[in-house]
């Protein structure tokens, strides 16, 4: 019996779940509330997010969250009974996530 390659996708899913639970709320508070409220200066945040390490961190976080969302969506569809065209659905969903990551990369490194 062939070993599954699912561990790769599952580990991205796990890491993405962790990031989505811990980092995303902090980012929402910082960029959505503290920044508009003037508690954090735009220049300061801009410096953090546009330095090379900051850009990679933002891309990494986005990649994991996209991977998490794609994986969950794929398995939820199976739970809901959409069991046909699995490969096509998987390619479409992970492709969409990859598109999101590429888009993020373009925005982050622009």
């Amino acid at each position: 019996m062939r070993a599954s390659n699912e561990p790769f996708f599952w580990s991205m899913f796990s890491a993405g779940g962790m990031v989505a639970a811990m980092v995303i709320p902090a980012l929402i508070i910082v960029t959505g509330f503290l920044l508009p409220a003037g508690a954090i200066g735009f220049d300061r945040l801009n410096t953090v997010l546009t330095n090379p390490i900051g850009r990679f961190v933002v891309l990494g976080i986005t990649f994991l969250v996209f991977a998490h969302a794609a994986h969950r969506l794929r398995h939820t569809m199976i739970d809901l009974g959409v069991t046909q065209f699995r490969l096509q659905i998987a390619v479409a969903i992970y492709g969409l996530a990859l598109g999101g990551v590429i888009w993020t990369a373009i925005v982050v490194f622009a």
Binding site: R2, S4, E6
Partner: peptide
Amino acid sequence: SDDGIWDCT
């Protein structure tokens, strides 16, 4: 395998 734990959602 895919029929083992990895089928579980």
